[in-house]
């Protein structure tokens, strides 16, 4: 699936959920399902700045594909992180660098999350994009 197909899939999943508490239940569920990151990877250089909870992001590049694993000590944050990983992980750096991320706005996350949580989510997205942009630039050399 392309990045946009995954985004559309998430949007329709959220459309099926009724009120925001249900959406939270779903995000929490995603958080529980995301495998925990190996403790040895939870280092300070993998910490994302700008979160009230801690978020670790690890990038792995092999066979031309950029794969992300991530974790958080807070469950809602972990669920959100899981959504970003689902959308962006496993594509080429070029695809990730050029992707336009619209699902966050479409499902209304930005308006419903507390500002600190939304900022944390955006910091994470920025960091993922940074990895991709750096690798894409390298590939062009």
């Amino acid at each position: 699936m392309t990045i946009n197909e995954i985004q559309d899939e998430i949007i329709s999943e959220f459309e099926m959920l009724g009120e925001w508490m249900d959406k939270y239940e779903y995000i929490i569920q995603l958080g529980k399902e995301l495998p925990s990151m190996d403790e040895s990877l939870k280092t300070d250089d993998r910490l994302i700045k700008g979160c009230q909870s801690r978020v670790w992001l690890h990038a792995d590049y092999s066979d031309g594909l950029l794969k992300f694993t991530a974790d958080s000590d807070a469950l809602i944050t972990k669920g959100l992180v899981a959504l970003l990983v689902r959308v962006l992980s496993g594509h080429t750096p070029q695809q990730i660098a050029e992707a336009e991320i619209y699902f966050i706005e479409k499902i209304g996350l930005q308006n419903h999350l507390s500002p600190t949580r939304a900022n944390g989510l955006l910091s994470m997205l920025k960091q993922m994009k940074l990895y991709a942009v750096a690798l894409a630039a390298q590939n062009k050399l």
Partner: peptide, 21 residues
């Protein structure tokens, strides 16, 4: 073991304001 941030956010959605952190 629940993170205070998670608890605070779910309270918020129920109209309840507390401080977390």
């Amino acid at each position: 073991q629940h993170h205070p941030f998670d608890v605070g956010e779910i309270l918020d959605k129920q109209g309840i304001a507390v401080r977390t952190g």
